[in-house]
Nucleic acid binder design. Structure first.
Length: 184
DNA sequence: CGAACGATTAGCT
DNA sequence: GCTAATCGTTCGA
């Protein structure tokens, strides 16, 4: 049994990812903030049904879904539920731990606290590209291993959406200074 | 075919 | 707190 059980609902998988170590080519860190999205969720890219852009969300669980945000940023998701469903978890922030120099170089002048504090920043720091879509998240060049520490997970409304804005599907590591925003 | 709109961020007030 | 940057997708004429 895979420790993260990506075949289950995204809102069940999402809190399990808090504390896990995510890397791409050895660069990354501890996941401190995520959001869940589902097919029956008006805020989700998969809500209108399969399209060329969101095709990976309807593929096998445990794979990567990358999308372009605001025409500028690459954002990283892990596909959940059974193939054909259309659910996933957006990785919103990491505590940077591995490949610090590569992340600092990619992120230019950003302070360490801001290296991976937001989905676009995670994409830039790890070197996420559209071509990563469809790859398994727990095999090279990616790496994902369960948390080696006990974590306290908090939750709240998702950020930056207009529909289903009250659904508490944002999850974070309590008290982390590497969040994109504080939880209330 | 034109227009509007983001699962955002950086920089300035 | 406010807004420009920037572009693929979606929607109305």
């Amino acid at each position: 049994m895979h420790p993260f059980r990506f075949e289950e609902d995204a809102w069940l998988v999402a809190p399990r990812l808090i504390g896990a170590i995510l890397t791409l080519d050895g660069v990354g860190g501890r996941i401190v903030e995520v959001e869940a999205y589902d097919r029956r969720d008006p805020a989700s890219h998969s809500f209108p049904g399969p399209t060329k852009r969101n095709a990976a969300m309807f593929g096998p669980p445990g794979r990567v879904y990358v999308y372009r945000s605001y025409g500028i940023h690459w954002c990283f998701n892990i596909v959940c539920r059974e193939e054909g469903h259309g659910a996933g978890v957006l990785i919103r922030a990491l505590e940077p731990l591995h490949g610090m120099e590569r992340m600092r170089a990619r992120r230019k002048l950003a302070a360490d606290r801001l290296l991976c504090a937001g989905p676009g920043r995670v994409g830039e720091a790890l070197g996420i590209e559209l071509g990563h879509t469809g790859m398994p998240v727990d095999a090279a060049p990616f790496g994902l291993r369960p948390s080696d520490v006990t974590v306290e997970v908090v939750s709240g409304p998702r950020i930056g959406i207009s529909r289903a804005a009250d659904v508490p599907w944002r999850f974070g590591l309590a008290g982390s200074r590497f969040l994109s925003r504080r939880f209330r």
